[in-house]
Each structure stands twice: as structure tokens, then as C-alpha cells.
């Protein structure tokens, strides 16, 4: 569903992403891991068509800038930016009408209930806390019922209830056949549900790890530290 082929993104001489290849199939949860500055957000923004790049990125076979690709894609940005003068309900209405979503009211209500925002419908974007804004941002991304969902650090700023619900939503989306690409620093938050993990270091994908590749007793965290620090975390203890 999400295919990245030989993708390079440069800022001047610096290659933030260097010849990246990545694919996420239907019903698959792909996790992007990497230290700060590894190029995860750049890759995610490029997938969503927010940055120029060399190479090819397609969503279900459509070039990512086409309207067909945009119809299939949902994006939760790293920093939730809401419109300060719109209410929570109006954010959903805006997305629903801009994406021409039919019978959006019920879908919107369900999302708001799930994230405990149903009593905040009349609150303005500027009146919400960072965590609340993140929840609205997730609702906006999911309202058009996209087939591919890209999330950049979606759990940052959420309260425990929000984290639990979003993890449940991610699992449900995956089970319903959606392709998910999620970047995170919180390895433990995806430990239960991930299918494939791309570990990025200095703009490269240093390791592609499938769940089946893990040795007995080995965790995703162990793999991560082996790649990023060149040794097992256990060795450092």
C-alpha cells in the first residue's frame, strides 16, 4: 500500500534521507525507529507529499501527490496544529466537507467519544491543551477512513487514556486491513502490535526487522540498541 523506492531528500549538501526503500502492506503496522535527527520525520513528511524528494513514493500504486493517493492517506503530524478559531466539531466538519466524506456526523461522533472529546465539541482549537490537540489531530486524520495511515510520534503529549485508546485504534486499523506507518521513540508502545520495524540511523535504513526475525527472548528494544549503539543493551548494564 505504501511504497518508497530509492527515495533521497537533501537539504543543501546534507542528505536527511539517503536512498530509502520501504514498503507497508495492507494490514501491516510498520514502525520507524531511530535516534533524534535520524530522518524519520523527513521520511514521513515526504511520504505525505509535504516535501520534495528524489525517487518514487506511491500509495496503492498512485504517485503520492495525486488526488487518488491523497484520498487514501491519513496523516497525524508530529506537532498537532489546529485552527485556533475553529471548534473541535468544526475541525471535523472542515475535514469531512473538504474530503467529501458522506454521513460524517456519526463517524465524527464515534471518534470524539473514543478519545473523550465529546464534551469538548464546542471548545476552540486554541483553548485545548497539547494532548487534546493531538487527539483532535488523530480524529481529523481518521475521519475520512483512509486506507493508509501515517503517524509521526502520535503518542507524545497524550494522557494515559489517550495512549491506551490510540494503541487500540492502531491495532484495530491494522486488523481492518489498513497499512500503518508509525514513527515513535516509545518502543514499548508498539512492542505488542508491530509487524515490521525500520531502524533509521543518519538518514539511512540501518536495519529492517520483521517480528519473525527476532530470536527467542529478544525484544525490539534489544535490536534497536544493537543497531544504534553497536552493542546489546544488556552489555551496557
Amino acid at each position: 500500500m505504501i511504497d518508497v523506492r530509492n527515495m533521497t531528500k537533501k537539504y543543501g549538501k546534507l542528505a536527511a534521507n539517503d536512498n530509502i526503500n520501504l514498503s507497508v502492506g495492507r494490514g501491516e503496522l510498520a514502525v520507524l525507529l531511530g535516534p533524534n535527527g535520524a530522518g524519520k520525520s523527513t521520511l514521513i513528511k515526504s511520504v505525505c507529499g509535504l516535501l520534495r524528494f528524489q525517487g518514487a513514493i506511491t500509495i496503492n500504486g498512485y504517485e503520492n501527490h495525486t488526488m487518488e493517493a491523497k484520498r487514501l492517506l491519513g496523516y497525524v503530524p508530529e506537532f498537532p496544529v489546529l485552527y485556533p478559531m475553529l471548534t473541535v466539531a468544526e475541525h471535523l466538519e472542515f475535514i469531512a466537507k473538504a474530503y467529501r466524506v458522506e454521513a460524517w456526523e456519526e463517524k465524527g461522533e464515534a471518534l470524539l467519544r473514543r478519545f473523550e472529546l465529546d464534551d469538548k465539541k464546542m471548545k476552540l482549537g486554541k483553548e485545548l491543551s497539547k494532548g487534546m490537540q493531538q487527539k483532535v489531530s488523530v480524529c481529523c486524520a481518521l475521519l475520512p477512513q483512509p486506507k493508509a495511515v501515517v503517524m509521526d510520534e502520535p503518542l507524545v503529549g497524550l494522557d494515559p487514556h489517550g495512549i491506551r485508546e490510540l494503541k487500540a485504534v492502531i491495532a484495530k486499523l491494522r486488523d481492518s486491513g489498513r497499512a500503518l506507518l508509525v514513527s515513535t521513540h516509545m518502543i514499548e508502545s508498539v512492542e505488542e502490535d508491530w509487524d515490521v520495524t525500520y531502524i533509521m540511523v543518519k538518514g539511512h535504513i540501518a536495519r529492517v526487522c520483521r517480528r519473525t526475525d527476532l530470536a527467542a527472548g529478544q525484544s525490539l528494544e534489544d535490536v534497536y540498541f544493537t543497531i544504534t549503539e553497536g552493542k546489546d543493551q544488556k552489555d551496557t548494564l
Partner: peptide, 11 residues
């Protein structure tokens, strides 16, 4: 400066 306008599936 906000992502929505880029992602809306319209011309």
C-alpha cells in the same frame, strides 16, 4: 504552513 491544504484530495 499547515499540512491540511496539501493533503486535501482536490485540484
Amino acid at each position: 504552513y499547515i499540512h491540511y491544504i496539501y493533503l486535501i484530495p482536490e485540484s
